[in-house]
Design a protein around this nucleic acid. Structure first.
Lengths: 228, 228
DNA sequence: TTCATACTTCGACCGTAGCCGAAGCATCGT
DNA sequence: ACGATGCTTCGGCTACGGTCGAAGTATGAA
């Protein structure tokens, strides 16, 4: 047994699916709360708490307390680099998450990304909102325009209420399947919930995929046209 | 849950201590048999067999059958790169193997590296053999000279017998504690066994460290002087 | 052929780690 | 002061993966 750095320890830390998901969701560089990370990992808050404690003890995460929230970030960019190199490696071996079953095309088309719409449809929605002038995009930062606010109110979204929450209204979120941004933030969440409540689409059990009804699909396409 | 490469899968693969030890022992680039890897991992052959199958299925290892041996190597240098970056990362967090107990200095001084002498003593031995002209070193390749062969026969080493084995006579092996090469190969093994049989030193239980007797130490130093 | 070596497969055991419900702190809003 | 929200701790359950003994297969040696 040679002496040396203990790669098994950190590898084991990353090797748990829930922890890996939490870590990758932090790769955007954005600080996330324990609750958000629990959702990202697909586990309950208690379990996430234990995982986060381990990750922090292992030097992968750092946290800062802010009010009653606990924001976690990757400890430094060395962690990001490592994760990135591991992702590259994994991709090179064809190790993709969730064995490519029949559901995969559906996932690429439309899926829930924590609490908002991702996939082909998510990307289209943001593209359309931007090209309609409803959302202004400056690099990665998104903001709702007056025109956009009026438009969204007209379809029954309580923009004022969303603004008063601590969560940012608009966020861009890069999704892996499209390599392009889609709309997150409380507005992204509200829009998805709007679709679900209106019966345009529904979640499928045990999956992140979103199934649009034919009618819902028609309406969605009409509401978010793409100029060509 | 974002889609993407499954880093958890490969991390879990590396995250088992036995597997990590086997992988790191393969980082020298040299092919090792299943039995050797089992020793490196500190586990029985059956267990190692299962681990090796998993590592191969995961694309980390490749094997080639040769007679009744099965030689394993890292699948490609991408694996080596990944392991190296993980080791660098682990070291940067201070994750060292085997919590630095009282045995650590002894390990640095003299220890067994699978079947030959490593540590301070191992490095000294090779340095001395080279400076005496007993072993010729061309880069990493080592070969026994005629002078060296005679010298070793005189202390009771059956060089002819060693030559007939399939295993290379001389190998250099880089050890972590010294960052310098020591002598491995069947000759390295034979020398260590010679020391043990002569009572110059003995293995300690449950450790890789080698304890020299005062007499053994004196003889060792005389046999392998260092010019200054 | 027969024996020895190298390795795999099978089967069973067991410990650890992940998981969640419930309860406990802590902080904020009112 | 009170309840709501965010998070941690505790306790107990469970399952998965690592482990080895024993037996089976393959290859080489005598």
């Amino acid at each position: 047994m040679k002496e040396g750095p203990d790669i098994a320890q950190i590898a084991a830390l990353i090797g748990d699916p829930a922890r890996a998901n939490m870590l990758t969701s932090l790769m955007g560089g954005r600080a996330l709360t324990a609750t958000e990370l629990a959702a990202a990992g697909g586990i309950t808050l208690q379990t996430a708490s234990a995982h986060l404690a381990k990750l922090e003890a292992g030097g992968l995460l750092s946290q800062r307390k802010q009010g009653r929230h606990r924001y976690f970030t990757l400890a430094d960019d060395g962690v990001g680099k490592l994760l990135e190199s591991m992702m590259g490696f994994a991709a090179s071996r064809g190790h993709l998450r969730h064995q490519p079953g029949p559901k995969e095309p559906a996932l690429r088309k439309a899926r829930i990304c924590y609490d908002h719409l991702a996939g082909d449809y998510g990307v289209r929605m943001l593209d359309s909102l931007v090209s309609q002038g409803a959302i202004a995009a400056i690099d990665e930062a998104l903001s709702l325009t007056n025109k956009g606010e009026a438009q969204l109110k007209s379809i029954g979204i309580d923009v004022g209420g969303l603004r008063s929450s601590r969560r940012p209204l608009c966020r861009s979120c890069l999704d892996w399947s499209e390599r392009r941004a889609h709309l997150a933030g409380s507005l992204g969440k509200a829009l998805l919930f709007n679709f679900l409540e209106a019966g345009w689409a529904r979640r499928t059990a045990n999956s992140r995929s979103i199934q649009f009804t034919p009618e819902g699909e028609r309406r969605f396409m009409a509401l978010f046209p793409i100029e060509r």
